[in-house]
Nucleic acid binder design. Structure first.
Lengths: 292, 292
DNA sequence: TGATACGATCGAAATTTTCGATTGTAATAA
DNA sequence: TTATTACAATCGAAAATTTCGATCGTATCA
């Protein structure tokens, strides 16, 4: 049994004429005969009687007809549904690092929800070190991270945007009096740093250590929010990408110290290289690229 | 799109392994690849991702799966329903002559109803002359007639049973005194005859006419019931097959006159030669042969 | 780094589908 | 009655497709 045969059967049931059916479907008349005979053979019954020069459906044929129509309708539904159907339900699992979750994703999610109301966006907090594993195990569909550059043969990058890294303090901090800071000016300062796995912390600590600068870590927290609050209250300096502190800079709760650095920190967007990009996923990726 | 491909896709979705799927379905592994690629090409989407050495359904694949399963279930239903399913609804249109309708069909119908409760038996009163046309136009599925022999190249006969034709009178009739009657004894008698189209009437009239016997037709009626009633009340003689008057003979309401004839009258059962005999129809034919 | 698991790919073989020509059988016209 | 027409069945050849086995490529695992 075959959709082609069922289609032929349905059209033939309508026409009650092999030749006309052949014309309509673009076959030779003998092919119609053959297809019906195949169907009859497989179903082990007779579907049509040819009595005189007229064609009639047999009892079995009458029985088959509604099912055949249903079958074709179902096939048609499938084609519709799978044809880049944005309105059909679906889910995209996004793995993102905390900073981006807080400061970039809300706008992205809101915009995507509007254009794709039926797609469920699932958010998974991940650290940079997990990106490759999570993509490789297909646990997440896309990864959106901030940190040092990630390169991997099995991972495709769609976006790599340099992010400015700032050393910040409360506006009242003593170091603010200087016009420009050198690394040595950070000697013996207190720092509020992100967890060790976080890349801009690593880069900054390297910087200090390679110059033999002594420093203290007053607070170590995975939460950017906690670090900012503490910094605002004057507990020490913090090192964060601009995007995480833009709000506080605008409202003068925090101040960027005039320390020039060229830390290589990027916002990046990845998928697994083998992954098929569904239209929905492609739309999401495009949106991230546009809004970030 | 093809049921074969959908089947493969469903099994593959379960196994998540091409090689095992090939074993399970009796294909080579490369054939599974080919079938899935065909399906993907036709639906213009990707159904499976191969990430690392694992296989995952894509969003489209997840979408397709329930439809594919539904499709296969529907195909399976079709096979079930068409596989000589006596319980499925159906209809047999029987064309029968009046006598048989009254005296034979009730028992047949009752018995068939019991064994095939879902088959609708549709009864159509027909005259012998219509048999060929009605079968040829497929207006009836079977014809059950009583009368002279019918032969036609396009018509198949399943049953031909000789029926005894009786000349009958009320028990009080004067002709009853004789032990044996010759055709000449019917001279100047009154007859209650069936319509001219009816075959045993024709045969009998020929008989009389060929011997130059004068006779009267007191009543001409299409209804066997009417004729019998009139005969019982002594209005004249009638010529009927024994099966139409068995009841009246048993209860001595009518008497068979001792007139020996060899009128060729048959109960016959026909279908059109080109007609496919569904299992239900075959059962009906068998039943008629058994009970008549 | 080698071994292994596993799907993709490719060309050849096998199978199926399609076609055109012809035949066969009713219905219709002459 | 015969000739004609309408129309599906049949048949063998051609065309298209499916399937297969062998091999390759890549990712994981030891």
């Amino acid at each position: 049994m075959d959709l082609k045969q069922l289609k032929t059967f349905v059209v033939l049931s309508k026409n009650k004429n092999y030749t006309r059916t052949a014309d309509e479907l673009g076959y030779a008349q003998s092919s119609i005969s053959a297809q019906i005979q195949q169907l009859e053979q497989e179903l082990n019954t007779k579907l049509l009687d040819r009595i005189g020069r007229k064609v009639f459906l047999t009892e079995s044929g009458e029985q088959l007809l509604p099912y055949a129509i249903e079958m074709l309708a179902l096939a048609s539904t499938i084609r519709d549904k799978l044809d880049n159907d944005h309105s059909s339900p679906g889910r995209i699992i996004v793995g993102a690092s905390e900073s981006l979750c807080i400061f970039k994703l809300p706008a992205i999610v809101e915009s995507f929800r509007q254009s794709h109301p039926n797609i469920e966006l699932h958010l998974e907090l991940i650290e940079n070190a997990q990106v490759v594993e999570q993509l490789t195990s297909n646990a997440i569909d896309v990864a959106l991270t901030i940190g040092n550059s990630i390169e991997h043969p099995a991972i495709t990058s769609f976006l790599k945007k340099r992010e400015e890294v700032l050393v910040l303090s409360a506006p009242t901090h003593s170091l603010r009096s200087k016009n420009a800071l050198a690394i040595t000016d950070f000697a013996n300062q207190s720092f509020l740093l992100t967890s060790t796995s976080c890349n801009y912390r690593e880069t900054f600590e390297c910087d200090l250590k390679s110059h033999g600068i002594p420093y203290q870590v007053t607070l170590e927290s995975g939460s950017v929010q906690v670090i900012k609050k503490m910094a605002i209250s004057g507990m020490g300096l913090c090192v964060l990408p601009r995007l995480a502190v833009q709000e506080e800079l605008n409202t003068d709760l925090l101040a960027a110290l005039p320390y020039k650095n060229d830390y290589k920190v990027y916002s990046q967007l990845f998928c697994h290289a083998s992954k098929w990009l569904s239209p929905n996923l492609t739309d999401f990726i495009d949106l991230v690229i546009k809004l970030i």
